[in-house]
């Protein structure tokens, strides 16, 4: 008997944010990330029969998404040669005469280690968010990640401001204790 079962009806609620965050950190484009996540779900749906249940649904979907991201880079790289011919080094008239050194990537800006650490931190955060009750997770995401103001959240979810702060308090307490175990 398989250890994990598959249920595509729950995919959006359970994994869309995690997959989206995973994608956007790699392609740095919001619309493209949405498309890749959607393609991943469709591909997952088509190949549901191949799911053996040995890995979790999330791991399985991530492995599909990875292929999608690789395919995307392969596709744009096939046109890279043409793009390089067209590219002029200094098309911007405003930056004409700038020092060449200013155009070189800053080695202290972001190194591989900090990128990996950020990815792991993002995974830890989504892991902890996944353990929260649905309402707490929704309110916490809207307030903390999306930065939506209190009034808008209250109107959208039909709750009072004091109710929102109680939910935020519970979510933050749970998140802090989960992160303390996994990260701090």
């Amino acid at each position: 008997m398989p250890k994990h079962l598959i249920d595509p009806n729950k995919w959006i609620d359970l994994y869309s944010d995690y997959l989206f965050n995973y994608t956007i950190s790699r392609v740095n484009d919001r619309d493209l990330s949405k498309d890749l996540v959607q393609d991943t779900f469709f591909a997952g749906l088509k190949s549901m029969k191949n799911f053996k249940g040995e890995a979790s649904e999330r791991t399985w979907l991530i492995s599909i998404l990875k292929r999608k991201i690789i395919d995307y880079y392969r596709r744009i790289n096939s046109n890279k040669g043409k793009a390089e011919v067209r590219m002029s080094y200094n098309s911007d008239t405003e930056s004409e005469g700038d020092w060449l050194e200013e155009r070189v990537a800053d080695p202290f800006d972001k190194n591989a280690e900090s990128v990996i650490e950020n990815e792991e931190l993002g995974e830890a955060i989504y892991g902890c968010l996944g353990k929260l009750p649905e309402k707490q997770a929704t309110v916490f995401k809207m307030k903390t990640i999306e930065g939506i103001d209190t009034e808008t959240i209250c109107n959208e979810l039909n709750i009072t401001a004091s109710n929102l702060w109680v939910i935020i308090h519970r979510a933050r307490t749970a998140m802090a204790s989960c992160m303390e175990k996994n990260w701090f």
């Binding site: 869309s16 931190l121 993002g122 933050r172």
Partner: peptide, 15 residues
């Protein structure tokens, strides 16, 4: 600490 980590991770989610 949680606030700092949330800022540092720069996580994004779908609307």
């Amino acid at each position: 600490k949680l606030t700092k980590k949330m800022h540092h991770a720069n996580v994004e989610c779908m609307h």
